[in-house]
């Protein structure tokens, strides 16, 4: 279980660096579909990536609000 989580998180880390094969990307996306732990790894690793790169901003609901608005947009079938 611990090993599986480690493998998943290593995969996510590599996805964020753009360093995976198409099959690995497909596998990562399948895991990310509504998977809370893996999504947490994505958000925390990306926060670290941005912070090390000099962008030091919390994501206090920012992404969620973008995605909520996108969902509303898609549901309404809007094309801008």
């Amino acid at each position: 279980m611990v090993s599986e989580k480690m493998d998943n998180n290593e995969l996510i880390s590599a996805v964020l660096d753009g360093e995976v094969s198409p099959d690995e990307l497909g596998s990562a996306l399948a895991k990310l579909h509504n998977a809370r732990e893996e999504r947490d790894a994505v958000t925390v690793y990306q926060l670290i990536k941005d912070a090390v790169g000099g962008i030091r901003v919390l994501d206090d609901g920012y992404t969620v609000r973008i995605l909520r608005r996108l969902a509303e947009h898609r549901a309404a079938g809007k094309s801008r």
């Binding site: 994505v42 920012y62 973008i66 996108l70």
Partner: peptide
């Protein structure tokens, strides 16, 4: 697409 949002929203 959500993953792209997470990756790039801060930038």
């Amino acid at each position: 697409f959500e993953l792209l949002v997470v990756k790039y929203q801060r930038r």
